[in-house]
């Protein structure tokens, strides 16, 4: 029973992932293929002076997306979890339904919304918040906004799931012992859903690092992320080894936070047993 899926995933997932690192050590072939022999030249191209800025921007945008998603998802998850059973169902459904539509279409919808002649621009003009030549699209702000839009459900769902299991009497206990509402929220609620917060960080930060479509369609040349460079090297330049080297870098960038969070959680687990152990 194991064999078919195991072999399939080894061939089409594990092997290709390792290939990223192998091909980064291959020379390019002028026809767009992979050259013969081994070389370190491809890795040297990573010292391209544009790259540090792009890597920094990728990290910055991903971190900002993660922070904003958590900031919005935590109060929302809390609110949904505290609502009556009926409202909980309705709100949760309302939160998920927009994300049943195609990802590309959602990105496109924002392009329409932020278009120089689109509704948001007109509204801002009417309110005197924008000048006729201010541009809402093709900048980091637009990329960040739509990244938050895209990845919010990945933060809301784990946070809601944990909040729903949270014993809200603990907040009453904190109030009873003299804590103000906000203090109780920070010192009792957030530690109570700590695991879910870490899950949300991973669920948002990792795909955010690999963003490609959003900066491609809504960003300009000054808001490119590492994903754009990978695609450019692969399609525009037909330099697969170079794309591969960049991908290897991204893979390491993706693995690092995962290992870090796993390490944090394991350290916590080794301390006093989890709450489930209680009678």
């Amino acid at each position: 029973m194991t064999a078919p899926s195991f072999v399939w995933l080894t061939v089409f997932f594990a092997l290709p992932t390792l290939l990223i690192f192998a091909i980064a050590l291959k020379p390019a072939d002028p026809l767009g293929g992979i050259g013969e022999g081994w070389t370190l030249d491809t890795l040297r191209t990573l010292s391209n002076p544009n790259y540090p800025a792009i890597v920094a921007r990728t990290l910055r945008l991903s971190a900002a997306t993660t922070a904003l998603c958590l900031l919005l998802a935590t109060p929302a998850g809390y609110h949904i979890a505290r609502a009556s059973a009926r409202w909980r169902q309705i709100l949760l459904l309302l939160m998920i339904v927009p994300f049943w539509t195609s990802f590309l279409i959602r990105v496109f919808a924002w392009k329409v919304l932020l278009h120089p002649e689109g509704p948001v621009k007109r509204l801002l003009l009417a309110l005197g918040l924008a000048s006729p030549d201010s541009l809402l699209l093709y900048n980091e702000g637009a990329v960040l906004l739509v990244m938050v839009y895209t990845y919010l459900p990945f933060a809301i769902l784990p946070i809601y799931a944990a909040a729903e299991k949270f014993d809200f009497r603990l907040l009453e206990a904190a109030r009873d012992l003299g804590a103000r509402g906000f203090y109780a929220f920070i010192h009792v609620f957030l530690p109570g859903i700590r695991r879910a917060l870490w899950t949300a960080v991973l669920m948002v930060f990792i795909p955010a690092l690999g963003s490609y479509v959003i900066p491609d369609l809504l960003g300009g040349p000054t808001s490119e992320m590492i994903g754009n460079k990978i695609a450019q090297r692969a399609f525009a330049d037909r330099n697969l080894p170079h794309a591969s080297a960049l991908s290897a870098l991204l893979t390491l960038g993706v693995l690092a936070p995962m290992i870090w969070v796993l390490f944090l959680q394991r350290r916590r687990d080794r301390r006093p047993a989890a709450a489930e152990a209680a009678p």
């Binding site: 194991t2 594990a14 290709p16 990223i20 692969a234 991908s247 991204l250 893979t251």
Partner: peptide, 30 residues
């Protein structure tokens, strides 16, 4: 074996699709 199997099953869920795309492209070309 099953623990390795599980890891193999779980990893594609977290790897960004961009990386999956490029790695498969490399594989198919190679």
């Amino acid at each position: 074996l099953q623990r390795a199997h599980y890891l193999l099953m779980y990893a594609p869920l977290v790897v960004p699709d961009l990386l999956m795309g490029i790695s498969l492209l490399l594989f198919f070309v190679a």
